[in-house]
């Protein structure tokens, strides 16, 4: 069966969607990604949708699901490379893509993931320090 490949790069998982997805492929990707986050302990998921010519309500829901599920498993999700026409259409359709971060391109997306994860780690260290001095 066809599958969208998921690449692992350090603490991150990278997905580049190169073809227009039919629904089953999208739901498989959702399941595979959550499995991978669990298996690898990834802290960030980056999804490149620059090759997608449309994002409809179903695909939007899948992206949102991936974001929420990853969040529960302590990973941040960023969607990058959305085409302007797709963004215009999404808003008119009534989708807001809640639960996922977005960035203009892969580079900015990686930066965003790194800063968010560093910020979280610092908070944890601070909390531990406070707990230690009490």
């Amino acid at each position: 069966m066809e599958r969208i490949p998921i690449l692992r790069m350090g603490k991150f998982l990278l997905v580049t969607i190169q073809i227009d997805l039919y629904d089953r492929l999208a739901t498989n990707l959702e399941a595979d990604l959550v499995q991978m986050v669990n298996k690898t302990g990834a802290r960030g998921v980056l999804i490149d949708i620059s090759a997608l010519s449309i994002v409809d309500s179903f695909m939007g829901r899948i992206l949102g699901n991936i974001g929420s599920m990853s969040k529960i498993m302590d990973a941040e999700t960023v969607v990058v490379g959305m085409q302007p026409a797709v963004a215009i259409t999404l808003i008119e359709l009534g989708l807001e893509l809640k639960g996922v971060h977005t960035a203009l391109n892969v580079e900015k997306g990686m930066e965003l993931l790194k800063t968010r994860i560093d910020a979280e780690d610092e908070e944890i260290i601070e909390e531990e320090d406070e707990a230690g001095t009490e």
């Binding site: 010519s53 449309i54 409809d56 359709l93």
Partner: peptide, 17 residues
Amino acid sequence: SLVNQTKLITAASELVR
């Protein structure tokens, strides 16, 4: 135009689903 194409195809995708 590309924007109108995208809107049309997205609407089509919703309805066909």
